[in-house]
Amino acid sequence: MAKLTEQEIHNLAMNIVGKDLEDKGFEFLGVNSELKRNPQFVALKDKKLHFVIVRAISYPNDPKFLDEILMSTIKDHAIKFNARTFYAGVGLANSEDFTKELTSESDYVVNYDGFQEF
């Protein structure tokens, strides 16, 4: 049973948020799934630019908790582009036992309430 890498877990979170953005009518201008590169999504909706930061959060950490310093830095950058800034925390856990790591064979539970504006 191969343990998922940090990048693979991040990609899971990216897929969840990307699908949510797509379902809400956002048009992607840029997608960056590389770890530690921000923002993950640059998207357009109603002729307005949106920067979306995605974080995969492991149990027992709260996916709604955001890094204020990081988000302030991104917001300062977004202002230069007249863009809105959003945070999307995606909680992921092994469905059999939340304390176990995610593997390529395990099912997982998602704790995602959508993206929030910063």
Rank of each mutant, 00 (worst) to 15 (best):
T99L: 11
R37E: 06
P63W: 08
E117T: 01
I16Q: 02
A93K: 14
I79N: 13
L102A: 08
D46C: 02
I16C: 12
E96A: 11
S95D: 11
K3N: 07
I69G: 11
H77E: 12
F41D: 08
V110R: 10
E101C: 06
I79H: 11
F118N: 03
R84N: 07
K75Y: 12
G18E: 04
T99R: 14
T99K: 15
N61F: 04
S33A: 14
R84C: 00
I53Y: 05
L29N: 14
L4M: 12
F115N: 02
V17H: 04
L4I: 02
D76H: 00
R55F: 03
S33Q: 03
I16A: 03
K36C: 07
A78P: 03
K47D: 15
E6R: 11
V90P: 07
D67R: 11
D20R: 14
G114Q: 11
D107H: 07
E68N: 13
K100T: 01
H77C: 04
N38W: 11
S104A: 13
D62N: 15
L70Y: 12
D46H: 06
T73Y: 08
R55N: 09
P39S: 06
A93C: 04
V109L: 13
I74F: 06
A93V: 00
A83P: 09
L44V: 09
E34H: 02
K75M: 05
E22L: 07
D113W: 01
K19F: 12
K100Y: 01
L35D: 09
F118L: 02
V54E: 10
M1Y: 08
G114D: 09
V110F: 07
E105W: 00
I9G: 05
L49P: 12
E34Q: 10
T103D: 11
P60V: 04
D23R: 15
Q40I: 03
A43I: 01
L44S: 15
E105M: 06
A2Y: 10
L102C: 03
K75G: 04
F28G: 13
M14V: 14
F28E: 05
K19P: 05
M14G: 03
I57P: 12
I9P: 08
L4Y: 05
K19V: 00
K19D: 06
F28K: 14
